[in-house]
Amino acid sequence: MITQKILQNKFLFIIPVTVLVGLHILWEYFNGGVTTHYLLAREDLPGISNWWGLLTIPLLSWILISLSKWLHNKNQTTYSISKITNGFIGGLVFGILISLLWEFRLENILSYAILLPIPIALFLRVHLPGNLLGFIIGLTYTFGGILPIGIGTVLIIGSFLIWTIFRKGLPFIFQKINQSIH
């Protein structure tokens, strides 16, 4: 029910997310300064300040909620409200898991866990906007407002390619081969 209300009025999600990002940045500001995240966690590479999260997270939320609404309106049977909600929660839990693995310095497990969406894409559609939004929100506290978008985009593209190739492409090829044999 709440997901349907959010699809109808995006501000029900965007305003609380923006407030939380703002509170997090204020807390950082008054406790040692706003964090800057460096690419590949190396200070000799360019840094990205958490200040950007005030722009990127609300904007991305707007875009992904709009896309979810469009997909739901286009085909309510394959992209139902429950699938949007479950995808968001699944992405959120996965994002929090990745954040915890990073915070507890379990990089050896993290290096495998971050790739989980790729094999899962053989069975489930993990490349949907709700999943990406949940994943990014789950990573935002630990990684700021830019790096999660890049990480999530790469994972979504990989998952989409796996889903398309194995769930759509291979059956089509096998069908054509079967037709040419008979």
Rank of each mutant, 00 (worst) to 15 (best):
E43H: 09
P46S: 08
T77G: 05
T56L: 12
I98M: 08
T18I: 08
T78D: 15
L64M: 14
G33K: 06
E28C: 03
F104M: 13
L45M: 04
W62K: 04
Y38T: 14
V34S: 00
Y29F: 11
T56Q: 09
L60V: 13
Q76A: 07
W102V: 06
G90E: 11
L54N: 08
I109Q: 06
N73M: 09
P16Q: 08
L67P: 11
N50R: 09
Q76K: 10
I89P: 10
W51L: 05
I14S: 01
W52T: 03
L59F: 12
G47R: 11
W27F: 14
N73T: 13
I25Q: 04
V19K: 10
N75I: 03
L100D: 06
S99K: 00
I109S: 01
G90R: 05
S68G: 09
G22V: 01
I63T: 13
T77D: 15
L20P: 05
L64C: 04
V21Y: 05
L45G: 03
I96G: 15
G32D: 02
T85L: 08
N86K: 13
L64S: 05
F13W: 10
E107R: 12
T18M: 07
W51S: 00
V17A: 06
G95W: 00
I81F: 13
I63P: 03
G91I: 11
V21R: 03
L101Y: 07
E107F: 13
I81D: 14
F94E: 13
W102N: 06
